[in-house]
Nucleic acid binder design. Sequence first.
DNA 1: CGGGGATGTTGACGGCGTCCACATCGGCGC
DNA 2: GCGCCGATGTGGACGCCGTCAACATCCCCG
Lengths: 225, 225
Amino acid sequence: MDSAPTTPEQRAYHHGNLREALVQAGVELAREGGPSTIVLRETARRVGVSPNAAYRHFSALPDLIDEVALEARRRLAEAMDAELSRCEPTGDAGADAVSRLAAVGRGYIRYALAEPGLFATAFPGCRPRAAEPTDPAPTVAARRGPFAILQEALTAIDAAHLLADPVETATLNAWAGVHGLSLLLLGPRAELSEEEREAAITHGVAFVVRGLTLTAVGRTPVRRR
Amino acid sequence: MDSAPTTPEQRAYHHGNLREALVQAGVELAREGGPSTIVLRETARRVGVSPNAAYRHFSALPDLIDEVALEARRRLAEAMDAELSRCEPTGDAGADAVSRLAAVGRGYIRYALAEPGLFATAFPGCRPRAAEPTDPAPTVAARRGPFAILQEALTAIDAAHLLADPVETATLNAWAGVHGLSLLLLGPRAELSEEEREAAITHGVAFVVRGLTLTAVGRTPVRRR
DNA sequence: CGGGGATGTTGACGGCGTCCACATCGGCGC
DNA sequence: GCGCCGATGTGGACGCCGTCAACATCCCCG
């Protein structure tokens, strides 16, 4: 029937690229209810394959979840980049760097609110893992992930002599701020109205920027490091 | 055998206060591996009772977990209070209010690092819940929980005319900062050394305080609200 | 002192992750 | 051209899990 099994979307062999299909289904599950909704048997069912077929491509369920997490981080980075690309330069390099940092933060939080399931899946270390014995791998980061994008924005501010702390410290605190706010808006403050939520995002990003930069108060930056 | 079944630690009736014992065992499980480690059958096993006995006291497993979460929050509030009580007044009301806020933040983060399992269990809304249909109850807060303690500290700063934002906004941002930093230190930055971790806590708390107050830059506070 | 309601047990069901043995298919060497 | 072998997928089983229904036990109140 298929003369060209090399067609990308075509299944080449037995099933074709089952691995990819399983990850795809896993992403869909994660979108519906977070990491704990990624269930091996259901994932296989959706692809139309026996549960054990997955074991030819993943050593166990957590491996599949890790793969989904990677994809979730990829999409988060994408969303941050998208928000970044909507920043138009004003000419003032310092102000631009600051507004780009704000955009990165907005992108992070907006993605979290738009895709709570994927967001919850994205950072494996940020959820309780039931005492896993094997984890010597230091979590190889995807090339230019969310963390890298944030760090880029902060490095630009650093170059403009606006940063109050070393870049590493600033990155950690900025990340903490937007990550924490995302979780709070999804959790204990989930009942906020649309406007309240938008206001919280604006204030939250401004809070982070204010804490990291000193320009807002018109003071000579204190360079450490 | 027991003439006085009213003895607190004595089991009065069939088992005694099984409910309490189950929660206790649940807390222990949570300490070992977070909320997903709280497993009904194992909890019952540890108490030495049939799994279904739990259903006389909880309508289902999530109810038990909620009870454990309540206890986790109670202990968090305790830790924050303990850190608070180590603050000695210097006479300067404004400076005291600020340093008390810092203490509250330190207490939060330190508890998270000392009891990661309980901390992960404490805020049900902050983890992915697999599409629960029944949740109209707005989560009745424990009397003076972590949130209230944080708000108290911020209200004191507000009274000293040091707060840059409305109290509600400030509370949300402060909470986000310490919560996010806690998760990051437990997750992606779990490999930090003892000193690095302490430094991160100090910097993080300072970052939050700097973003919320304007005293650090010697400027007249801008009162909104 | 006897019945009834609160409490705990037994047994069962379906779903889950995972292991083991078996079936199927297709490319590669002869 | 053909047969074989490794890669891929299937079926069945095991021991967990949460939950339900029926039954057993025990104290308290009338």
